[in-house]
Amino acid sequence: MAAEGEDYLIARLGAEMRVHLDGGGADPTAVLLPFDGLFEVRVAAALRLWRVLNGRHPGRNPAALSVARRNRLILALRALDGRLDGATHRMIAAALYDAEPIPERDWISHELRDRTARLVRLGIAMMNGGYRRLLLHPYRGRS
């Protein structure tokens, strides 16, 4: 039995997984999972690993951001750039949504006003350290 294990990167069928083998040589190979707050996440990862090792499609990566979430983050960063350059929310909305300039009297009740304000707030929150929450996705609240 090896005192120190070995780490491997398995890349098959579009999935990359890091595996640590302890050198115990168990037959059949086994996965050891602690019963902690991340148990469900670990089970899903073990199932994805088993699928890949058996030549099957691994399934969806639970840690990947959805396309909608990614697009919202991109818009938030663009809104933040505009705000830091001194653009008004109306100017940001026109640039982000490729909209015609919205008249001042219509801006107060326009749907893009609130949406743009939320994007600017999200961008500012990310700039002030909120980007670290992306590292926790999808494991927030599971410690």
Score class of each variant (00 low, 15 high):
88 T>K: 05
87 A>Y: 01
26 A>Q: 12
120 V>C: 02
101 P>V: 03
82 G>F: 08
25 G>H: 14
26 A>E: 12
47 L>W: 13
115 R>F: 00
47 L>G: 08
68 A>R: 14
84 L>T: 05
94 A>E: 10
26 A>S: 12
61 N>S: 06
28 P>V: 02
19 V>L: 07
21 L>F: 14
107 W>I: 03
58 P>W: 11
62 P>K: 07
85 D>S: 04
71 N>K: 12
62 P>G: 08
86 G>T: 00
41 V>L: 13
101 P>F: 00
49 L>R: 11
95 A>T: 02
98 D>T: 14
67 V>A: 15
116 T>V: 13
70 R>G: 04
91 M>T: 07
118 R>P: 04
97 Y>T: 15
45 A>W: 14
77 L>S: 11
125 A>R: 00
44 A>T: 13
67 V>P: 04
16 E>K: 12
126 M>V: 10
95 A>P: 02
24 G>Y: 14
33 L>S: 12
72 R>Q: 04
60 R>G: 11
52 V>T: 05
89 H>V: 12
50 W>I: 09
15 A>D: 13
39 F>I: 09
46 A>F: 08
80 L>C: 02
23 G>S: 12
63 A>V: 09
124 I>Q: 06
99 A>L: 01
69 R>L: 08
91 M>Q: 05
75 L>K: 03
18 R>C: 15
86 G>H: 00
76 A>Y: 00
24 G>P: 08
120 V>F: 01
39 F>H: 11
71 N>R: 10
114 D>R: 09
25 G>Q: 13
42 R>W: 07
73 L>M: 08
77 L>Q: 14
125 A>H: 01
95 A>S: 02
104 E>Q: 05
94 A>V: 04
62 P>V: 15
49 L>E: 12
69 R>I: 06
122 L>Q: 03
103 P>N: 02
54 N>K: 09
17 M>E: 06
120 V>L: 08
13 L>F: 14
15 A>S: 13
22 D>C: 12
37 G>A: 07
76 A>I: 10
104 E>C: 06
95 A>I: 03
101 P>M: 01
27 D>M: 11
26 A>I: 01
124 I>K: 05
100 E>L: 03
81 D>Y: 07
127 M>N: 03
106 D>E: 06
116 T>E: 02
32 L>N: 12
114 D>I: 05
18 R>T: 03
28 P>W: 06
38 L>Y: 01
90 R>P: 01
41 V>A: 15
19 V>M: 07
33 L>C: 13
58 P>A: 09
123 G>R: 00
74 I>T: 08
105 R>H: 10
46 A>Y: 07
15 A>M: 15
58 P>L: 07
100 E>Q: 06
38 L>S: 14
16 E>V: 14
113 R>P: 04
105 R>C: 03
40 E>D: 07
79 A>I: 15
108 I>M: 11
11 A>H: 15
57 H>Y: 04
75 L>E: 06
62 P>Q: 10
52 V>Q: 09
124 I>T: 03
18 R>P: 14
51 R>M: 07
114 D>A: 10
22 D>G: 09
64 A>R: 07
72 R>C: 00
34 P>L: 01
106 D>L: 11
74 I>H: 08
71 N>C: 10
56 R>E: 15
43 V>R: 12
36 D>V: 00
89 H>L: 06
15 A>N: 15
33 L>H: 15
65 L>A: 09
15 A>K: 11
18 R>D: 14
18 R>H: 12
108 I>S: 07
66 S>G: 04
71 N>E: 13
50 W>N: 13
120 V>E: 01
94 A>L: 02
